[in-house]
Design a protein around this nucleic acid. Structure first.
Lengths: 341, 341
DNA sequence: GTTGCTTATGTTTTCACTAACATAAATTCA
DNA sequence: TGAATTTATGTTAGTGAAAACATAAGCAAC
């Protein structure tokens, strides 16, 4: 008892030992109460809680976590917060982690693999229980440190490649090809493409390459492409649509790398009196909710964003199949057909 | 030298001592290299870095942070990720923290003050350098623990009330009243209101109350109100607009609690052939970018979301005016006039 | 009543790192 | 040239909590 007293407690924030003194128990007992583990009698638990509350004690997870290597933290690196897709993924992650009492710590890479690398190292310095990264492309250093530390890592959004341990998403290539087949089946032959984050959004690139390959294999053509360097937005979509239609090419249908761009294209058409889909058909990707509110339904690929985040977070935080082989969880996408009138 | 060796190193993850051994220096020197503090010769620094990289050592911030109480973490609690406003705030926070090498750890309260309280306690257990909370309304426990721990706390979005230390945002009441005055100045006298997150979105409530008071003071009327329980979205806005216009009331203008709802209202009008603003004027709040892509410009209040996040993050992470009086930083809002044709 | 299990609490040691202090070589300055 | 300063590195003593282990009371079964 005398040992743990330290009757000359310095002024710093209260510790478990302070709580223990007031509650008249040992520091270890306070620790048990705080974590809700081990055997504690109801009376002691209440005493400890009262004491903690009295002096404003807050559990210090840094201390206990020193050697644990499985703190209730999960590192998350997303390429951007500008795109609703990723904020919905984040919402899925946040929801699932919340249920389990875990917290996300995150970084935004702005689609740079170098930045992602720096963030991974930084996040790992908090000894998180898991890591959630976007895409399957990473620097060698990232792969190496993930393997070396053995941190449970989920890669999301893409499954066209080799995951380090597990990936959750859908085949970007299949989605692009599927959209191409659908549009071909509707009789379209003259295509155009509008994208953003030129050269950086690798997943959009995969979709488009598969799309283009499918189109060309069918003997149809991509007449025009227009890819902005900036992030995607409705406004960018509207502008690029204006530009692409101003060229001499006359595509029957425009494939956009996402719904924001596509909706921007639709707005351009509405404003210019271009008939959709009579004069120009529009296809996006993601199936964002706001499309339902547009005056007209455009074609898109519905992707399970929230679910991807939730699935990745759930996997990362369960040790169940630890050590198992790399797994690839494909979540379903579906084509949503646009209005045809 | 023998002391720090521990020639029987267990299999766990590598530590500074491991790095030190390989580099042939003391553990403290490794610590200095990792933190980039104190004097280190270039040669030693390179040796240490090489050694660390060789064995895959990652700085463990938990250990050092035990007693520091100023870790490079910032706790963030936002009410929702469904609303673009908050994801933009988050982007502002993330950007600014990134520049300073800090990381956000966050939670989503779903507009519940109780949940916010739990998250604050949880976040404080990581001994963050600062805290960013939304709004000025919090439970007493939150106020108490913030005062007690002295954690640097910024409250964002609202400035109509008493901040604990500093708040960054704009006057919701002034924004509501300003919009009312603007619409009155345009000659409108019959108003309607559409909102969401009924009873939970306190800031929208403040705006509306000031709006209504201003309208009534001018002798004009709020003919109808419609507030959803759900989160806001374009679709909800479209539906509520349909409902409110179906009633017998015939407002000349609808004030929406945010742009998503307002844009949904516009979509309803476009789909139904209701002339905007001839038959019905529409006013939102926030000035989200996507409005620029709509076929027609609606009236809204431009709010500095990104800047609010950035300002709060900057303040939270500088000790400059620590101990200073509570401060209230008002960021500018401006009315964006809609198309009049 | 002794054995063995569950419940409940305490003691000791360890975790990986940093602050504070100590030492000493290299450099500057008078 | 010797004192003062700067640069560079090492040593010691914590930091707050949790794992591992120890102890003991209560109770059931035999």
């Amino acid at each position: 008892m005398a040992k743990q007293t330290g009757q000359d407690r310095r002024s710093g924030p209260p510790t478990m030992t302070d709580v223990a003194q007031i509650a008249g128990v040992s520091q270890m007992t306070v620790s048990r109460v705080m974590r809700g583990e081990g055997y504690i009698s109801a009376a002691v638990r209440d005493q400890v809680r009262a004491a903690a509350s009295e002096i404003g004690y807050i559990h210090n997870r840094l201390a206990g976590g020193i050697s644990a290597y499985d703190n209730p933290l999960v590192g998350v690196v997303l390429p951007t917060l500008q795109n609703r897709v990723f904020t919905e993924v984040l919402a899925g992650i946040s929801d699932t982690l919340d249920e389990k009492g875990l917290r996300p710590v995150f970084g935004v890479s702005e689609y740079s693999l170098e930045t992602e690398k720096d963030m991974v190292f930084d996040l790992l310095s908090w000894r998180p229980r898991g890591l959630i990264l976007s895409g399957l492309e990473h620097t060698d250093e990232v792969r190496r440190i993930v393997r070396k530390t053995g941190v449970r890592t989920a890669e999301i959004m893409d499954i066209d490649g080799d995951p380090m341990s597990a990936c959750f998403g859908f085949s970007q290539e299949a989605a692009g090809a599927e959209m191409a087949r659908y549009l071909l089946s509707r009789g379209y032959r003259q295509f155009g493409y509008v994208g953003s984050y030129s050269g950086l959004d690798l997943r959009a690139l995969k979709r488009f390459e598969a799309f283009a390959a499918t189109v060309q294999a069918a003997g149809a053509q991509i007449l025009a492409e227009r890819v902005a360097h900036e992030p995607s937005s409705m406004l960018v979509g509207r502008q690029l649509t204006n530009e692409i239609l101003g060229q001499n090419s006359q595509p029957e249908v425009l494939y956009y790398s996402n719904d924001d761009l596509a909706a921007g294209g639709l707005m351009h058409c509405l404003a210019k009196g271009i008939g959709v889909p009579k004069d120009l058909a529009i296809a996006g990707c993601n199936g964002l909710d706001f499309l339902d509110a547009l005056p007209m339904r455009i074609t898109t690929t519905k992707t399970p964003r929230f679910e991807i985040g939730a699935a990745a977070a759930a996997w990362v935080t369960t040790g169940d199949n630890a050590g198992a082989q790399a797994q690839r969880q494909s979540l379903e996408t579906t084509i949503i057909e646009g209005d045809t009138a």
